[in-house]
């Protein structure tokens, strides 16, 4: 464990908590893409299948459990408890356009052709593009609530910090995982446009609006 990865995990945890609290306290999931949340729940499910078979540390197992519980709780709140506030008219990105190509790629490009490894690879590739429905929804509505933009900033920062972690581990341990690195770079690049808007607008107290 290094400081970059710890900060990355905490940023990821912060993002998940921010979103869950936003939905729970405002009793509304307006402006949030349910499809992205379903994809994130799928990412954690396919990545943490070794939760009970491959013990790394208490921290590792605890965080995996928290991520799984919170992501399913968010999906539950959005599609059941506060379903009336779910903006399905603007959350129209076709998930199959992501899941099918990612599933195919996971079969073609992986470290080991075993079910657990292919599912892990699938989760890595899927996580890289899982935010697209959310970014697409914001581009359609042309704006995002400030709390949602904080959520996105924390979520985007997590994988950016992981990239620094991978550079650090490469130089200190000689460890690298090409699949995670390439997918992590794609994932972070997708946030660049948002990062620019967040830093130039939200940090100056303005509403996050996309140029129409």
């Amino acid at each position: 464990m290094n400081i970059f990865r710890l900060l990355g995990d905490l940023s990821h945890l912060l993002a998940i908590i921010i979103l869950l609290l936003k939905i729970w306290r405002t009793r509304s999931c307006a402006g949030v893409s349910g499809k992205s949340q379903i994809l994130f729940a799928l990412v954690f499910t396919t990545r943490y299948l070794d939760l009970f078979t491959n013990f790394i540390s208490m921290y590792n197992s605890a965080m995996k459990l928290i991520y799984l519980v919170c992501s399913y709780a968010t999906v539950f709140l959005m599609y059941f408890k506060f379903k009336a506030t779910y903006d399905s008219n603007h959350d129209t990105f076709r998930m199959e356009f992501l899941v099918v190509p990612v599933g195919g790629l996971a079969f073609l490009v992986n470290h080991d052709f075993t079910p657990l490894e292919i599912l892990w690879t699938f989760s890595i590739y899927l996580e890289a593009v899982a935010i697209l429905p959310q970014l697409f929804m914001i581009s359609k509505t042309g704006e995002a609530e400030t709390i949602t933009s904080h959520y996105l900033f924390a979520l985007g920062s997590y994988r950016a910090l992981y990239i620094v972690n991978w550079v650090f581990r490469f130089y200190t341990e000689g460890f690298f995982d090409l699949i995670a690195i390439v997918a992590g770079c794609v994932q972070t690049i997708l946030y660049c446009d948002f990062f620019y808007l967040y830093i130039t607008k939200v940090l100056k107290g303005k509403q996050l609006t996309l140029p129409a």
Partner: peptide, 10 residues
Amino acid sequence: LPQMQKKDEL
């Protein structure tokens, strides 16, 4: 792909 797998990351 070259395998440098530890799966110790979240």
